[in-house]
Amino acid sequence: MITPLNTSSRAASRGLSDISIRNLFIIPTIVFLIVFNIFPLIYSLGYSFTDFRASTNAPANFVGLKNYRELLSDPYIWNNFAVTAKYVIVSVLGQVVVGFGTAMLLNRTIPLKGLITTLLLLPMMLSMAVVGLFWKLLYDPSWGVINYVLDLGKFQWLGDPKMALYAVAFTDIWMWSPFVMLLSLAGLSAVPKHLYEAAAIDRAGPFYTFFRITLPLVAPILMIAVIFRTMEAFKTFDLAYVLSTQPSTEVISIRLYKMAFQEWQTGRSCALAYIVLIMVLAITNIYVKYLNKVKER
């Protein structure tokens, strides 16, 4: 009597098939992400065709593509995109130069290399908003350490409209060069030593060695760093928002924030959000394709 009962209960516990376990493990996550990531986006897609303002109780009126049409022909918005593009170019270029350069320096036997590498990585782990804020003091024209050390007198970093964007980008370079360095270092240490030995036997100069051996072999991993940083710089908000109130540093995320939460043009901001979203998805797509390609190697 007892034996069959035992077997059947055992069978029941074994009976949770692989397929049901798979579903149990995967479906809640997918549902959660759909509810909290995809559903809001559908919601805002709807609002992007209306003149809804979240600050009033007035019902939303359907306005068709008016928001999109106006945004895409608005020179101010284009200016925000231009500012963003300039910011992306300056900060990513700076990060690649500083990060890759530092990695080249570190790619040799150096005392305390592990400790130095970890210390160099510290800036990128810190909060952009909180640490970025402190750069306000460092950049201060009167009390700033930077002006004192570089003997620049009362040089305006954040106060000058032309300089402010570079100042924000410099802080970004300080924070994120370590990221490029980390990836470059991984790439550099993977270059087979015998290639350099062969180059040395052939009496290849340092430039030849660098451009024909080092760079091509590190390029794929460096490319990952560049795409990733481009995407992050394109989305940038925290740093520019806490550091500067200049119109010349108004990147697209800040414009979007102001439109949505200060001017309360909810419908219009939803449309702008969608324009930004499509751009980000395009970059992400490139990034993921590239990641998979690198993984396959």
Partner: peptide, 20 residues
């Protein structure tokens, strides 16, 4: 890819509908 792309969106883009 879908899972990853939800992470890639700018915070402000997601924040507008979430706020509402």
């Amino acid at each position: 890819f879908f899972i990853l792309s939800t992470r890639m969106l700018p915070a402000v883009v997601v924040a507008i509908p979430m706020f509402l």
